[in-house]
Design a protein around this nucleic acid. Structure first.
Lengths: 150, 150
DNA sequence: CCATTAAGTTTATTTTCTGGACTGACTATG
DNA sequence: CATAGTCAGTCCAGAAAATAAACTTAATGG
């Protein structure tokens, strides 16, 4: 199977992975959520080639995850900002962060802390059921074909 | 930056992406959560080369995300099962699924439905704050250096 | 025997990534 | 005015990684 074929699969994971399932794309998204917006900042922070930076940013813009917004005129310069669709990736990034904090944090603890402005507390993200609001556990979930199945 | 250098970064995203941030690894994990356990089943379902299947499974085993469990003796055969650490990736996969369901489901609806056994309902995963239990929103969160920062 | 299953390994080819130089449009400094 | 610097890229050749297809090993079933 080729990269591009993934997007055609009747599977939400495959379709999403076709967009973000790339090492550097995920790192770019992390930086987006940390407030990074400019080409050179992405490139320098990630330490990847400019070619890849340009290609990944373009792909994310094409997918509607990022948008280019001009921030000055002469010379014309754009910055990359998350769209509403891009903001919907927050749970993905937070799930990844949480896994890393649990399993790869050193003895000192996690490298970053997250504070929830609305309640004022440092928190961990918890994946819950939309219906009963209990935390989700893989073993408590049954999966079956839905309306969009082939 | 090289792939392997990612794991050394003082960032939970980087460390996790070093393990799972690969197209096929994420697809393999999806299949694991759907109950797939055998080499040939992974390889056939994904339609990827045996080489990549073998390499990715080995990497996941080395990382402690999967474990090889013998299911017969002559000839010796193993199946790949999620470890406890692997089960901790459930929120990541569900976050990805949820994004795909929202943005890439066709008119018919999502390809798969998820039922929470403990409450009996079909649900969507919701990322919430561990402290106030409200749904999380990127704009309501502040990030700052934690104890494990450089 | 011969075919089949399962779980890989090997090999040659194709694709992707990298680092570095280069471009173009401007701004700031002396 | 000349030179250096910034920002956002593009271009290119070599290096690294991914791929498909064939091959291997160890057994079983007919």
């Amino acid at each position: 199977m080729k990269w591009d074929d993934l997007a055609e699969q009747p599977c939400s994971v495959a379709r999403t992975v076709a967009v973000i399932g790339d090492r550097w794309t995920l790192m770019i998204l992390r930086d987006c959520f940390l407030g990074i917006r400019r080409f050179d900042d992405f490139q320098t922070r990630l330490g990847i080639s400019r070619t890849i930076t340009a290609e990944r940013l373009k792909a994310l813009v094409d997918e509607g995850v990022l948008k280019k917004v001009p921030y000055q005129d002469r010379p014309l310069r754009h910055e990359y900002r998350l769209t509403d669709k891009g903001l919907d990736l927050y749970p993905v990034i937070m799930a990844v962060v949480n896994f890393g904090d649990r399993h790869y944090a050193g003895e000192a603890g996690p490298p970053l802390l997250h504070r929830h402005r609305t309640c004022g507390c440092d928190f961990q993200p918890v994946m819950t059921c939309s219906e009963c609001h209990d935390p989700l556990n893989a073993r408590e979930v049954e999966t079956r074909a839905g309306p969009g199945a082939v």
